[in-house]
Simulated scan of single mutants.
Amino acid sequence: MNLVDLRIFACVARHPSLGAAAQELHLTPSAVSKALRRLEGDLDTVLFDRSAKQLVLNASGQRMLDFSKSMLTLADQAKADIMGNRAVIECKVAAPAILLWRHAPVLMRAMQAYPDASLSMQTMFEDEALAALLRGEVNHAIVTSEVIEGRGAHWSSDWQVTSLGDMHLQLVAGKRHRLAISLSSGLTAASANELTRAALPQPALRASSSQILAYDFVSPSRSLFCGEQRGSRSDGWRDDQLPRKIRYWIDDLQLLLSTVKSGQALAYLPEFALADAELLRIEVSDCAFHCHEQVWLVSNAKNAPHWQHALAEFMSATSKDTA
Rank of each mutant, 00 (worst) to 15 (best):
N85C: 09
R102N: 05
F9P: 02
L74S: 08
R37N: 12
T45A: 15
H177L: 01
V88S: 12
C287H: 15
K261A: 07
Q254H: 06
V295C: 13
H154I: 03
Y215H: 13
Y114T: 02
M315S: 10
S299D: 06
M124G: 07
L266C: 01
L74E: 04
A80E: 06
Q112K: 13
Q170Y: 01
M64L: 09
H306P: 00
A87E: 05
V12A: 08
R281M: 04
R7S: 13
R222E: 11
S221M: 13
P96S: 10
S299H: 05
T123G: 00
Y114R: 10
Q308L: 14
L6K: 12
A275D: 14
R281N: 08
E293I: 02
A317S: 12
Y268A: 09
V56N: 04
A173D: 01
G84C: 10
N85S: 15
Q112V: 12
P203C: 12
R86Y: 08
L43F: 13
H292N: 12
E149T: 09
S184D: 09
E40D: 03
I148T: 08
T123C: 00
L47T: 07
V284E: 04
S209V: 00
A301H: 12
P201Y: 02
P243Q: 04
I246C: 00
S223K: 09
S223G: 07
S30A: 00
D321W: 15
L195S: 03
V4A: 15
R238V: 12
A80T: 05
L57P: 02
H309K: 12
A207K: 05
A190E: 01
V12F: 11
H26D: 11
D216F: 01
G41D: 14
A204T: 10
C287E: 07
L183C: 05
W159E: 12
N193M: 04
Q54L: 05
R281H: 13
L25N: 02
R247S: 06
I212K: 02
M1W: 04
G227V: 02
M108D: 07
R178D: 00
A192I: 13
W249K: 01
K79L: 13
A277I: 11
S191L: 03
E128W: 08
